[in-house]
C-alpha cells in the first residue's frame, strides 16, 4: 500500500514537472535571449545558458525606448485602471445580483453581447470620440474606454449572488444605509472575488496593445507593449533587446499575480457556479 502510494506520488510529480517545463521553458529561453547578443538566438546547436550581455541589452533598450519611463507609464495606467474599474464593475455586479429593477435584464444582456464584439471594428469610432474632446495622446484615453469591463461585471455578479438576501434584509431592518451595506458588509466578504477581478483587469490592461498604440502618439507616453512593438523595424530587429524588454514586461504581472493568487483561486468563481 505504501509503496503504491509512493509510486503514485512520483508519477504525479513527473506529470506536473513536465507540464511546468512546457509552460515555463519559453520564459527561460526568453531570459537566455535577454542576456546574450542579438544573433545568438539563432545559433545551432542552440545556446541554453544565460550570457553576460544582459546589462548591455538593458542599456541599449533604455536608450532606444526609455524602458524605465515606459514601465512607469504602464504601471500608472494599469494600476489606475484596475482600481477604477474594480470599483465600477463591483458596484454594477452588486446591482445586477442583489436588486431587481426595471431594465436589469436588457442591460445585462447588452453587456454580454459586448463581450462578443471584435474590438477592431470599434477602434475608429472610439478614436473619434477622443479626438473630439482633444484627449488623444493622454493617459485617460487609454484608461477610460474599458472601465466598464463586461467580463468583470459578469464575474462580480456571479460572486455576489452567493450573498444571502436575508443578510442584507436584516441590515436594512437594522437601519443601515445602502452604501454602508455595500462598503462595510458586502465588499469585505467579497475580497477573494475582488482579487480575481483585479487580476483579470490588470492582465487585460498591462497587455493591452492595439488601443494604446492607436491613441498614444508620442514615445514618452507609450505603454510597454507599444514600445516593445516599436523595436520590430523593417529589416532590423535587435533580438537581445526585444527579449530583455519582454522579460521585464513579464515581471510586474507575475508579482501582481503572486501577491493575489491565493485570493484569486478562491475568488475566481466564488459562489457562482454552484447554483
Amino acid at each position: 500500500m505504501k509503496k503504491n502510494n509512493t509510486l503514485k506520488k512520483i508519477s504525479l510529480y513527473v506529470f506536473l514537472v513536465i507540464g511546468v517545463i512546457l509552460s515555463v521553458f519559453p520564459f527561460y529561453w526568453m531570459f537566455v535571449g535577454a542576456t546574450n547578443p542579438s544573433g545568438e538566438i539563432f545559433s545551432v546547436p542552440p545556446n541554453f545558458l544565460p550570457g553576460d550581455y544582459g546589462w548591455e541589452n538593458f542599456k541599449n533598450l533604455n536608450e532606444n525606448i526609455g524602458i524605465i519611463r515606459v514601465m512607469g507609464n504602464s504601471l500608472f495606467i494599469t494600476l489606475t485602471f484596475t482600481a477604477l474599474s474594480t470599483i465600477v464593475c463591483t458596484a454594477a455586479g452588486y446591482a445586477f445580483a442583489k436588486f431587481s429593477f426595471k431594465g436589469r435584464n436588457p442591460i445585462f444582456f447588452l453587456l454580454l453581447v459586448a463581450i462578443m464584439i471584435p474590438y477592431h471594428v470599434t477602434l475608429i469610432p472610439l478614436f473619434e470620440i477622443f479626438a473630439k474632446v482633444d484627449w488623444l495622446n493622454t493617459f485617460q484615453a487609454v484608461i477610460l474606454p474599458q472601465i466598464a469591463y463586461p467580463f468583470a461585471i459578469f464575474l462580480m455578479r456571479q460572486n455576489m449572488q452567493a450573498i444571502p438576501d436575508s443578510l442584507l434584509e436584516a441590515a436594512r431592518v437594522d437601519g443601515a444605509g445602502e452604501f454602508h451595506i455595500f462598503f462595510r458588509m458586502v465588499l469585505p466578504v467579497m475580497r477573494p472575488a475582488l482579487a480575481a477581478v483585479a487580476i483579470f483587469l490588470f492582465m487585460f490592461q498591462w497587455n493591452n496593445f492595439i488601443w494604446p498604440l492607436v491613441v498614444l502618439q508620442s514615445q514618452d507616453m507609450y505603454t510597454l507593449p507599444v514600445a516593445l512593438s516599436s523595436l520590430v523595424g523593417m529589416s532590423r530587429i535587435d533580438y537581445g533587446q526585444v527579449m530583455m524588454g519582454t522579460t521585464l514586461s513579464t515581471l510586474p504581472i507575475m508579482i501582481f499575480f503572486l501577491l493575489l493568487q491565493r485570493q484569486f483561486i478562491s475568488g475566481i468563481l466564488g459562489g457562482s457556479v454552484k447554483e
Binding site: 515555463v24 520564459f27 507593449p225 514586461s249
Partner: peptide, 17 residues
Amino acid sequence: VSFFMPAITALVASSII
C-alpha cells in the same frame, strides 16, 4: 504560478519567441 504564467505574457513577446 508556473502553469498560469503563459496567460499573463504580453503577446508581442511570446509570439516572437
